[in-house]
Design a protein around this nucleic acid. Structure first.
Length: 420
DNA sequence: TCTGGGGTCCTAGGACCC
DNA sequence: TCTGGGGTCCTAGGACCC
C-alpha cells in the first residue's frame, strides 16, 4: 500500500502561514520575474484565476478582489518542505520525496491499522507542526494513490482510501482522464476526442496493445497501475541527477554582450556550486540564449552550444571559461535577448573522475580555492564572494521581484516578528 | 510594458562497429 | 535475379512531472 501526501497550494500556504493577517484574502504566488501565477490559494482558485496566468493579465482582478501577491521565495518554500518531509518520515520507514510539496509513503505492513485514521493522523500532525494543510490518498499503486489524493482534495474529506475493486471502479469513473498521473495535455486531448473521458473509460475501452502503440511503455504502466497492478516502485533513494541547470528570464531585455557574459557567468557559477553541493562533476556544458518569443514585432534568434570538457569538473573558474567560450560562439549582435541559461550534464561522482594524461590544470589547488569560496558563502551568505566576471555593477539583466516575503525560517535577520 | 524554472523518460533514425 | 546479421551509441523531438 502507498499513501501520497500532497500539500495544498503549497507556495501560497507557506506565505499564509507567516502572514496570518491575510485571513481569507485570495493569495497568488508569481514565478521568477513576477511573470505568471504558479500557485493559488483556494480563494484565488475560486475566483477562476488560471494556473500560469501572466501577472499583467490579472492586474484588474488583483485590485478588485484585494488579492495578496507574492514573488516566489524558494528559500522559504525549500525549508518548509524539509519540515514537512521530516514529519512525514515519522509515519513510515520508507519515504519517497517526490517533489517539493509531496511524498509517497510505503504503508506495506501497516494493513492491520485503520488506514483512514492513519491518514487523518498524518494530516493533523502536519497541520500542527507546519501550519500547512495536506491531502492524503491511500491505494495499492502509486497512480491510484495519486487519484485518491485528487479525490480527497475535491470532496473535502482530506483523506481517501481505496482497496476493494468496487471502490477503485467508483474512483476511476469519477476521475477525468486529464487528472490521471502520467497523462498530460497532449494525450488527454487525443483520448477525449476518441471518447475516452475518464480513467474508467481508459482501462475498460482500451487494450494494452493500443495503449502501447499510442502512448509507449509509459502509457502501459499507467494503464496497469490504474487496474491495481503495481509497475512503479517506491524510490526511497533518489537516483543521482543527470543534469543540473540554472536558467533565467531577464527583468529587461539585454542587447549588450558584456551584460550577457555577466549573466552566463553567474549561471555557470551557480551550476558549479550546485555540482559541488551534490559531490558531482560535469563532463558537458551547454549554454543557450534566446530572444523574447512573445514579441512578434521583434527579430527572433535562439541558439545553443554544447561543449565537452577534457576532464569532468565542478570548478567554477573552469566551467565559467567554457560557458563564456560557448556564448562567444553563439552570440549574434543586434538582438534583444530575454533569456539565457547554463545546463551541465554527463555528471559523474566527484571521486570517480577519469583523469587526462595531458591535463595542465592544478586541480588540487583549484579544489582548495573552491572549498574556500564555499566556506565564505556558507558563513557570510549568497553573493558575499563572486567571480569578477559576474560583474560588480548593477545587474541590469537581473529579475524583478517586487513582492518578496522574508526568509523567516533560514535567516536570523529576517525572523518573524510578532507585535502585541 | 509585462508571459517561470528544473527535471525525467521513451522512441526513431542515423552513424558506426565487426 | 541477386544485395547479411547483429549490435551500440548518439541525438532530436515529443511526452510527461512538479
Amino acid at each position: 500500500m502507498f499513501a501520497l501526501a500532497d500539500c495544498n497550494n503549497f507556495y501560497a500556504s507557506c506565505e499564509k502561514v507567516f502572514n496570518p493577517s491575510i485571513g481569507l484574502r485570495p493569495v497568488v504566488v508569481l514565478s521568477n520575474n513576477d511573470g505568471c501565477v504558479i500557485a493559488r490559494s483556494a480563494e484565488a482558485k475560486r475566483l477562476g484565476i488560471p494556473m500560469g496566468a501572466p501577472a499583467f493579465k490579472i492586474e484588474e482582478m488583483i485590485r478588485k478582489y484585494d488579492i495578496a501577491v507574492f514573488s516566489s521565495n524558494f528559500e522559504l518554500y525549500g525549508d518548509m518542505s524539509q519540515r514537512v518531509m521530516n514529519i512525514l518520515s515519522r509515519f513510515t520507514p520508507d519515504l519517497e520525496i517526490y517533489s517539493i510539496d509531496e511524498a509517497f509513503l510505503s504503508l506495506t505492513g501497516f494493513e492491520h491499522l485503520n488506514l483512514i485514521d492513519y491518514g487523518h493522523k498524518i494530516r493533523e500532525t502536519l497541520k500542527q507542526g507546519t501550519g500547512i494543510a495536506v491531502g492524503v490518498g491511500i491505494a495499492p499503486t502509486k497512480t491510484l494513490a495519486k487519484a485518491a489524493n485528487v479525490y480527497a482534495k475535491k470532496n473535502g474529506s482530506g483523506v481517501w482510501f481505496v482497496y476493494e475493486k468496487t471502490d477503485i471502479d467508483k474512483l476511476l469513473r469519477w476521475l477525468p482522464i486529464s487528472d490521471v498521473w502520467g497523462i498530460g495535455r497532449k494525450h488527454s486531448s487525443r483520448l477525449e476526442n476518441a471518447g475516452i473521458k475518464t480513467a474508467y473509460d481508459f482501462v475498460t475501452k482500451m487494450s494494452e496493445e493500443i495503449v502501447l502503440k499510442r502512448m509507449t511503455i509509459t502509457g502501459v504502466r499507467t494503464w496497469k497501475e490504474l487496474k491495481g497492478i503495481k509497475c512503479i516502485p517506491l524510490e526511497k533513494f533518489p537516483p543521482s541527477k543527470k543534469s543540473i541547470a540554472t536558467t533565467r528570464s531577464f527583468g529587461h531585455m539585454v542587447e549588450n554582450y558584456d551584460k550577457l557574459i555577466e549573466s552566463v557567468t553567474t549561471f555557470a557559477s551557480s551550476c558549479a556550486s550546485k555540482l559541488r553541493a551534490s559531490r558531482l562533476a560535469a563532463g558537458q556544458i551547454m549554454v543557450f540564449i534566446h530572444t523574447n518569443s512573445f514579441r512578434k514585432d521583434l527579430d527572433q534568434y535562439a541558439q545553443n552550444r554544447v561543449l565537452t570538457l577534457p576532464v569532468p569538473t565542478s570548478d567554477s573558474l573552469e566551467l565559467i571559461q567554457y560557458a563564456q567560450k560557448a556564448l562567444k560562439d553563439i552570440f549574434k549582435e543586434g538582438y534583444q535577448y530575454k533569456k539565457a541559461g547554463v545546463i551541465v550534464s554527463a555528471l559523474v561522482n566527484e571521486n570517480k573522475i577519469q583523469q587526462d594524461m595531458f591535463d595542465r590544470i592544478d586541480r588540487e589547488k583549484h579544489k582548495n580555492l573552491m572549498n574556500a569560496m564555499d566556506e565564505v558563502t556558507k558563513r557570510f551568505g549568497k553573493n558575499s564572494i563572486k567571480i569578477a566576471s559576474q560583474g560588480l555593477g548593477k545587474r541590469t539583466w537581473h529579475m524583478n521581484q517586487q513582492n518578496l516575503s522574508k526568509r523567516y525560517t533560514t535567516r536570523w535577520d529576517e525572523i518573524i516578528e510578532v507585535k502585541i
